[in-house]
Nucleic acid binder design. Structure first.
Lengths: 226, 226
DNA sequence: GACGTTACCTTAACAGCGTTAAACTAACCG
DNA sequence: CGGTTAGTTTAACGCTGTTAAGGTAACGTC
């Protein structure tokens, strides 16, 4: 039983359910999902482990709620950042992306859990239409096309996924491979900008104008064996 | 002890170590990392669980080896796909990216494990200079700039990370959110191409020519409250 | 051929995990 | 006052990774 959206029954608001949720969130944010155990949460709250089952339908449900609150905070963070720039501007789009990267960097373990779900989104999220912030991006994008800052495209969702992929990929790679770590000495590579945010900023011209050379220059090819 | 690169001691090549590794790989590929337990691997091989400790330094070391072989297969897959197009061509770059997406889609659980490592790359990978295929991308890119297909850039690594982010982000989002799943009815969005590979193909013009409108058109802005 | 060493594998056990069952307390409702 | 129910506990089950101790069989050496 117990979905624990509110203090449940009559009105005896004890606050234990929110205490459990906050304890779980803290553990995840601090030490990662691997450190989250029912007993650890229970000890933090000051109850026995089985008491949690009175408020949540097991560990997965608890994690789902952590993910849900994470998405809400994430979305609010994005919304706030993009609001600082005028609608329809390229800068607003860039601010949205930069906030995405910043949030992930400032909440590494938390972000991992939010987007690390294995079998699709948790059930909790299926109810609400859009909690991930995709609509923010979509809106930003359509405004940009309407204002003339962006080349119009018949399928804005496709463009939105393109942009989402860029920031999400950068962040995921950073979290998995630590891009900004000092490269090994035997692997000489030109220096990258410091943090993932710096890298993201450096992406702007690529996103804006693409990578391809102007048309007339495409004549020669490198003639070596493939 | 035992790092298990070869049958260890004198020469009694029993092949148990590779059997363990393959069993672990199979379990991960079929049912995901969550289904991987020492006892499950042992049962599959036909030994007791503790026998594994004679070949691997614990579960993490076993997983690391699975990841390592995964990277090798991944890299070979990418290499084969890109080899089908001439060096320096934009098509070669596109084929590399498409292979990236295809591999992830055809080896979902496997890919998750490969790039799902939490604390940086596993120790096994730190020895070898580049196993991830980043050098393939980098080479492809430099060839493209040399041939004139791509606009030259002083920092090819930055461009490489940009492209890597795009494919990796697309794949990660697909694995986490199932992008190509039928959208909920209450969330009207323009139809996306079917699979993640289709989506990737549709990205090509964005990568090539960017999203920004030609310069002179950037005058008006959408005048609404932010 | 006997001896000591070592590779290889086993069973038993420990601490921790998520989860269930049963029991208990305390507050509420009629 | 009696009954219901929220809230919590202890005990236990089956699972996990891992360690300890012990055994067996093949090897190199004298």
């Amino acid at each position: 039983m117990a979905t624990a959206t509110a203090p449940l029954g009559g009105g005896r608001a004890s606050g234990v359910d929110t205490a459990i949720l906050e304890a779980a969130r803290d553990i995840v944010a601090r030490d990662g999902i691997g450190a989250l155990s029912m007993r650890a949460v229970a000890e933090r709250v000051g109850v026995s482990a089985t008491a949690i089952y009175h408020y949540f339908d097991g560990k997965q449900a608890l994690v789902d709620r952590v993910v849900q609150t994470g998405f809400l905070r994430f979305r609010a963070y994005l919304e706030e950042a993009s609001a600082e720039h005028p609608r329809g501007s390229f800068e607003r789009l860039a601010a949205l992306g930069e906030a995405y990267v910043r949030f992930a960097l400032e909440n590494r373990e938390y972000f991992r859990v939010i987007f690390g779900t294995h079998n699709g989104h948790p059930k909790v999220l299926e109810d609400m239409p859009d909690i991930s912030g995709f609509d923010l991006l979509r809106e930003c994008l359509c405004d940009g096309m309407a204002s003339g800052a962006l080349r119009p495209h018949p399928n804005p969702d496709l463009v939105a996924i393109y942009l989402w992929s860029i920031v999400h990929g950068l962040v995921t790679l950073e979290l998995a491979c630590e891009l900004d770590a000092p490269p090994p000495t035997d692997c000489p590579r030109s220096a990258l900008p410091g943090t993932a945010v710096d890298i993201f900023r450096a992406f702007a011209p690529f996103v804006g104008h693409g990578l391809r050379a102007p048309e007339p220059a495409r004549a020669t090819e490198v003639r070596t064996e493939p």
